[in-house]
Amino acid sequence: MRIRSDSRSRQPMFLLVCAAGLLFSATISAQTDAVTARDAWVRVPAKSKTETALYMVVENHTSQPRAIVSVSTDAAASAELHQMQMVKTMMVMTPVSQVAIPAHGKASFDPNGYHVMLFGLKTRPAPGDKIDVTLKLDDGTTVPVEAIVRK
């Protein structure tokens, strides 16, 4: 009797472990190829700085609009989505919460528009080095990006 009751109480625990396992594998497999990045490059930081900008083209191969909501990297303390824009006669750089990628369209990150700012670079990148970053999309999937360092 006692044994049965024990096995019943273990069942939910077993299911919980299974659910956690599924969730874990879902996180691992969240990487998508429905959205891809190309031509990614990072500007060599100015001599006194540990921050720099990353540029790339992100393409959405699906019929659903998507958005980049955050960026992460092991190469820097933090990574942020930023935008340069002309406001009246001034060029202003501000952080943005997301960057939209239209269905079957692209988001261009270039020196006159969006860029990813890397703050607190852990090592000083030289031309030719590679920096890996991960884009997180609004549906929870992730896009790996390999950027090359140039002047």
Binding site: E80, T89, M90, M91, V92, M93, T94, M117
Partner: peptide
């Protein structure tokens, strides 16, 4: 012209908007 723009959520703390002529 230029303007200091606080960006408290960013690691840069503040941004500087400036004319580019």
């Amino acid at each position: 012209s230029y303007e200091i723009i606080p960006t408290p959520t960013s690691a840069m703390k503040y941004s500087v908007a400036h004319s580019t002529t």
